[in-house]
Each structure stands twice: as C-alpha cells, then as structure tokens.
Simulated scan of single mutants.
Amino acid sequence: MADKAKSKATKRHFNYQHHLLDDATKEMNEWTGENKVVEIHLLSMFSSVFKPHNLDDAEALFIVGTKETTPSLEAVSAAPVKPWLFSRVFALLGSSFVLLALLFLVFRSNNAVPGMIFIGSLAVPFSLLIMFFEINVFRNISVYQLMTVFLVGGILSLIATMILYSLIPSGNGTSWESALVVGFIEETAKMLVIAYFINRFRLNYIFNGLLIGAAIGAGFAVFETAGYTGQYGLVTLLMRSWQAIGTHTIWSAIMGAAIILAKERHEPVTGSNMVAPKFLRFYLLAIGLHAIWDWNAPFALLDILYLQQWVLISIGWLAIFVLTNAGLREARTLQGQRILKHSQIGG
C-alpha cells in the first residue's frame, strides 16, 4: 500500500511539473504569435552531439553565409535543429584550459595565467555562440560577420553600458532595486548594439536575431569575465564560466529574436519596434532574469546548490527553445508562401 501511495504521489508530482512546463511554453509562445504548447525534446535536439562527424562536416558548417554558400529559401531546412559542432568547440577550448592549468600548476609558470583567463572566459560563451550559428537554418551570416559582431559588438555593448552607468545611479547591484537598475542598464546597452547590427546586416529572420544577440552577449560575457578575473582571481573565473550557460549569451539571444519579431520584414529596426508588445515582453524577461540573478535574495534555500541560478538558467533556456520553435515555424511559413506564390504565377 505504501509503495502504491508513493507511486501515485510521484505520478502527481510529474504531472504537475509537466503541466507547469506546458503552461510556461504556451505563455511564451503566445508572445511569438502562436497559441500552442511547445514540446521540448532535449535528447532529440542534441542527439547529433554523440554521433561521429569528420572534418568535412565541420568545414561545411563554417563556410556558409557567403554569396555562393547561402542557400535559397527553398533549400533551407525547416526540420528540427540538431547542433553538434559547439560540443567539439567546447571540448577544444576545455582541453586547452586544462593544458594551461597543468602548465601553471606543474611548472609554476605564471605566463600561463593570461591564457587561462582568456580561454576560461571564452569557453562557454563562444561554444554557445557556435550552437546558435549552427541552428541558424538560413545560413546567411558568415563566420567573418559573426566574429565582427562578437568582438566589436561585445566591446561596443560594454562601452554603451559604461555610458549608461555614468548617467543612471545603480547602487551596489545586490539589493533588488539596485539589481533591477543594473539589469536594465546592461540589457538595454546590449539591445541597442543588437539593433544596430541587425540593421547593418539587414537581417529579417528570428534565427538571425538569436545569433546576433548571442554574439553580442557572448562578447560581453567574455570581456566582463576576463576583467573580473583579473580583479578577483581564478575562483571568479571558475564560477562565472559554468554560470555562463545561462547568462549574457542567452539573455541577449532572447532580445535579438524579439527585435526581429517586432519589426516588419525587410524594414529596419525603429524606435516604434522597441515599444511593440512582441519585443517588450521578451526584453522585460531578459531584464528580469538579469536582475534576479544579481539580487542577493534573503532566502537561504536559494543558496543550496545554486538553486537561484539553476532556476533562472532553466527559464532562460525555456525562452530559447520557444524562440527556436518560432524560428522553424517562420521558415516553414515563408517556404509555404513562396510555393503558393509560384503556383499562382504558374497557374
């Protein structure tokens, strides 16, 4: 009887979690314009990570985005995305960090420390950036463009942040009021730079917005983490490195996709887009995630195994999955419109 009651309780708990997840994805999906639950299949999405791939497979991904290698809309794949190259990039950067750490620990070489800071700051944000590069099914952004946004955009977003900090008092960043101001300043600074690059490259697809946002967020994260590590030591690097799976890169990707959702296709981003509900909801979500991340919440429970951070990481990724679904829906819709247009012309 006890086992049966325990089984029923477990089942109720599972059903509650399932309904909660469905409600969350449906709510976020409504922000994108579709009133449906988004099913999340993590094992399926990342199944290609565990499959063998050769150098040709990797190079085929890296050569996209030029006039000769950007596919036509008809050739774009609207199948569920299955990125894998990011895991190899992470393994490469991770192994490089380990070798530098051995150089430092075994041979006491202080010359290894700058390399550790650089590679350690780069590993997670840059690997995530490669993932967003892979899932951009339109293949219309080249590696050169991506590196430009990553480096220049990351630095510009830091400059914009410093300008806003000089204009808006932010406090210590740990009280809820101060954390909210910090979240507003940093996410707004990145948003402005994201909008600039979307206009500069004349981008029109949700996946493009995810990628440009991720590039600027990743650049911001790398330079910020390297700066903090220089001030506070390698422990800071280790903490910020694993936490980077759900911070600036993800928050900025959310905003980039939201900008695309809010603007008219083939039209530049304007001020009116920034007050559109499709943008504001995701923008406020990014600010909220950032603010709660920085907030020193007075609840001891949230400090257990970094519960506060894991909850926020989960919410951020939930938004990414919903926006990825919206990107695939957009690709299918555009292809359907193209087929309909051609059939009408042919008829």
Rank of each mutant, 00 (worst) to 15 (best):
K263L: 00
M162N: 14
N54H: 05
G230R: 06
E177K: 14
A226F: 01
Y283R: 02
L73P: 08
S44E: 14
S175G: 15
A179I: 06
S87A: 15
L93I: 08
F14K: 15
R88Y: 13
M116R: 03
A195M: 09
A286D: 00
F223W: 14
I141S: 02
M274D: 02
S77C: 12
Q335C: 03
T25H: 04
T10V: 13
G33Y: 03
E74H: 11
I320R: 00
L164C: 10
L122Y: 07
S241I: 00
I63P: 02
Q344Y: 06
T174D: 12
S241V: 02
A179P: 08
F150R: 01
F126V: 07
I313D: 03
R139S: 04
I135R: 06
A218F: 12
A75G: 07
L102M: 15
V38Y: 06
T148G: 12
G227N: 09
N208M: 10
I345H: 10
L164S: 14
S142N: 12
E59R: 13
T66R: 11
G230K: 11
G347Y: 11
S314K: 04
L102E: 14
A195R: 05
H248N: 02
Y228W: 07
N111M: 09
G233Y: 08
H342I: 08
Q145C: 09
L102H: 10
I168W: 11
H13T: 15
A5T: 03
P169D: 07
L307E: 04
M162I: 05
S47I: 08
V322C: 01
L167M: 14
T10C: 12
S157T: 08
D56K: 06
L99M: 09
A2N: 13
W242R: 04
A258K: 01
A291R: 06
K341C: 01
F50D: 08
Y232W: 13
L164A: 15
L340E: 11
R265K: 12
G120N: 10
I185K: 02
T324W: 04
L129P: 02
V106E: 04
P52D: 10
K6L: 14
F62H: 05
E30V: 13
L43T: 06
K263R: 09
N325R: 07
A215C: 02
E39M: 00
H266E: 13
G65C: 03
T270Y: 01
V181G: 05
L151A: 15
V64Q: 14
V152A: 10
N296Y: 07
I287K: 02
R332I: 01
T66C: 08
L100S: 07
R200T: 10
A218H: 09
W293M: 07
L122D: 09
G115C: 09
L237C: 14
L105Q: 15
T148F: 04
A24R: 14
F118A: 15
F279R: 05
T247A: 00
L158W: 07
G288A: 05
L93C: 11
L61T: 10
Q17I: 15
A221M: 13
H19G: 14
M191Q: 12
P83R: 09
V152G: 01
F150S: 11
A297C: 03
F279Q: 07
A5R: 12
N35K: 10
E187G: 03
V49T: 06
